[in-house]
Nucleic acid binder design. Structure first.
Lengths: 154, 154
DNA sequence: TCTGAAACTTAGCTGTC
DNA sequence: GACAGCTAAGTTTCAGA
């Protein structure tokens, strides 16, 4: 088994891919000081380990016609299992992310919708889920920053 | 091959890339009913239009040692420009996303940190920004859903 | 065990229709 | 938008440190 868990090299590779997943292995290798095959093998290992879960495209939601973004705080009935919340929200294509959180609310849900009417529809449907007591929502006025990776400095 | 609406084709291409940005153009083309060069040209156009802003890697923050996630609501001094907030937050690698929002708070900031101590440090530094009156933060207990694209059903 | 070089395979790209 | 050919990258193999 490899002796290094995530070493500096792996972090730099992940960082390079996070900025541009289409960079070639040779190119990344030149930056971190490895050959192309060596970089590929490390990427393969990172995928096996679950550190990298896939490759995706960075999308500007507004440019695709999803103009309205908002966050919905969910207040649930006591004894609602997180898994029940997850299963229910997974059915909404408008839900981009959701987490259970500390504080008054039980879960915080990020939603993209085509317009305000669409957002309202989604909000009402979520509020109507059987385990939901009430909701509180805020609308995004303007997105300031949208990174797809974050963490301690590499 | 049925005649497809152009918008529908673009959306299906984006959807395919969002799920797996490493799929080949030929593979995506087979799904949507186009040749590989045709798909590539549509992707190029989507990039030029700004609908696709880049390609990135899907990372499991926890697997990379970023165990602590939270949201910080920022309450700012009146007459703080959104651009000032953006510029200040851009300096924090721990900030994954930030938006100005409706409601009591001025901005909602998503933060990833290595651990609780690190999160606290970031929180204190953000709270110490000259334009910040006060902050309110919630910690993520468990992420339920983390999609990298969302929107109206395709 | 991890690496790098080279051979091999596949996909990306461009010109043409 | 499709086809075809050229270019470039991904992938595998193998031998060395």
């Amino acid at each position: 088994m490899p002796q290094n868990d995530l070493d500096t090299l792996d972090e730099r590779i992940v960082h390079a891919l996070a900025e541009d997943a289409r960079r070639t292995y040779a190119d990344i290798g030149a930056e971190v000081g490895l050959s192309a095959p060596a970089v590929k093998r490390r990427v393969d290992r990172l995928r096996e380990r679950g550190a990298i879960t896939g490759f995706t495209v960075r999308v500007d939601p507004a440019a695709l016609g999803w103009q309205t973004e908002g966050f919905i705080e969910m207040y649930c009935r006591s004894r609602t299992a997180p898994e029940d919340i997850r299963r229910a929200l997974a059915r909404y294509p408008e839900v981009a992310s959701a987490s259970t959180v500390t504080g008054d609310a039980d879960a915080l849900v990020q939603v993209f919708a085509a317009d305000m009417r669409h957002f309202e529809t989604v909000l009402e449907r979520i509020a109507g889920e059987p385990f939901v007591d009430r909701t509180k929502s805020v609308l995004v006025l303007s997105p300031l920053l949208r990174r797809y990776t974050a963490g301690p400095p590499l």
